[in-house]
């Protein structure tokens, strides 16, 4: 446990220290949100209608693009070998790294979601549902990204392929994430149905990912 806590602490420190990923993540969200009005026009009503979808797609892209970082740095300096072979169970090590990555990538987005919501004219009642659903969904997305990242350990430097491998797996989370947000925002008949499925998908991803990733990494160190 102490080892895993040390690892979590190290990964977080690296992410939030200057030059780490946290600032870049916030910058990324901001830039992409700005692109949408340029593409569809500044009509606030239109933006309000598509804002939930936009924010979900941005979350998904951010996690996808940063996925290779999960193991790449550790692979490069040889830390990965030690992390997997010399410490606690590899599955637990990977779960810890996954959670560190989730905190570093998803938390900044949740933090600036209110700002983005204002810019995209998201209905005010949609803010809390948005943050809640993203909180849950992003954990599942990070878990799937970890599988992709572990495959990159084997093929090294072929990071375009990760979108090909992972994007199809993201579709269920996207569908139920958006619909859960919509259900909670517009208070439909059974507001929690989609949310329940979203939670289920996240839990399954979280269960599968460490084992799959551990196998992929062990085979290719």
């Amino acid at each position: 446990m102490k080892s895993l806590y040390a690892l979590l602490k190290r990964d977080m420190t690296l992410f939030f220290r200057s030059g780490g990923g946290a600032g870049q993540a916030i910058g990324f969200y901001l830039v992409v949100v700005i692109l949408f009005p340029f593409a569809v026009g500044p009509d606030l009503n239109l933006l309000a209608r598509i804002s939930i979808g936009i924010l979900w797609v941005i979350l998904l892209l951010a996690i996808l693009l940063s996925a290779e970082r999960i193991f790449a740095d550790d692979l490069e300096d040889g830390s990965l070998t030690l992390l997997i072979t010399a410490g606690p169970l590899p599955e637990l090590v990977i779960l810890t790294k996954l959670i560190a990555h989730w905190i570093a990538i998803a938390m900044p987005l949740l933090l600036i979601t209110p700002v983005l919501a204002i810019m995209l004219n998201l209905p005010l009642g949609g803010l809390m549902p948005m943050i809640l659903c993203m909180f849950i969904g992003s954990l599942g997305l990070c878990a799937l990204a970890t599988i992709g990242a572990s495959i990159l350990v084997a093929i090294r430097r072929a990071n375009q392929i990760i979108s090909l491998l992972i994007l199809p797996l993201y579709i269920p989370t996207l569908i139920f994430g958006v619909s859960a947000t919509n259900d909670l925002t517009f208070e439909v008949e059974k507001p929690y149905a989609s949310l329940t499925i979203l939670i289920a998908i996240t839990l399954i991803s979280l269960l599968v990912a460490p084992f799959a990733a551990a196998q992929a990494i062990k085979a290719n160190l």
Binding site: Y5, A6, L7, R10, T13, R17, L82, L83, A86, G87
Partner: peptide, 29 residues
């Protein structure tokens, strides 16, 4: 029960000397 030292330094450039050593010491028990 073993130490493996190779040409790969397993150090993080963005951590301090102390933090690097502390991490590996904690992680490896």
């Amino acid at each position: 029960i073993s130490h493996f030292i190779s040409h790969q330094n397993s150090l993080k450039a963005n951590l301090t000397v102390y933090e690097n050593l502390k991490f590996w010491t904690e992680f490896l028990g």
